[in-house]
Amino acid sequence: MSTNIYSFLLLRSLYQPLAAFGELSRGDPAPLAIFFRYSLWLLLLPPIFALIGGANFGWRLGAEQPLVLPLAELWLISAGYFMILAFGLVSTALISRWMAVTYAANASLGRHLALVTIVGEPLAVASVAHLFPDVLVQVLVLIPTMIWSMSLLYRGLPVVLETSPERGMLMASSLVAWLLVAAVSLLGLSMGLWVMGIGPLLGV
């Protein structure tokens, strides 16, 4: 494995994901190095874009007037956003490694972390749409990106984790199930918080 794998991942995985998957399957990168030299930078993008967009344009949820929040609150939301993304990335990588035994896949945590990051990278880059936080813009940009990310997951998993395509398909589907459950938990959790009085003011 070349020493500059991190810069390689950061740049090439975006436009040559298959090459990046192949490169990853040839070594076991250190998990901490992957996280701090690769994942972290991508994790920072969406909260920063959201902060800038929210401060300049306000959130446009479709209704007439945009929802403008004070800067302090925007910082708080962005920090929370970052924490959730980081938690999502790490927990998905851990769950993926946990599943590896069942699907006879490689269990090196560094690879799992890198795989999840590569899969999420298009979404992180596409979060540039947060600069103009209009719901329609987000939907139009992020949903095609999400489909692209999912196809990366299904194609990349068997390569990176050195398992058969069939087992890879099973494992990718199990990960999709986890991601869906995680996403819906996030929705439920935020609703619970809103109702408790944290976040937007609700008349409940």
């Binding site: 589907s173 199990s174 999709v176 199930a177 869906l180 459950v181 819906v184 938990s185 439920g188 609703m191 619970g192 809103w194 109702v195 408790m196 609700l202 409940v204």
Partner: peptide, 23 residues
Amino acid sequence: LAFYGLATFEGPMMSIRSVNVVS
């Protein structure tokens, strides 16, 4: 099975009163 897992998690979650009040 993946979507079964989602739907059977989502349902109980949406039946919690403080989530349901919004959903």
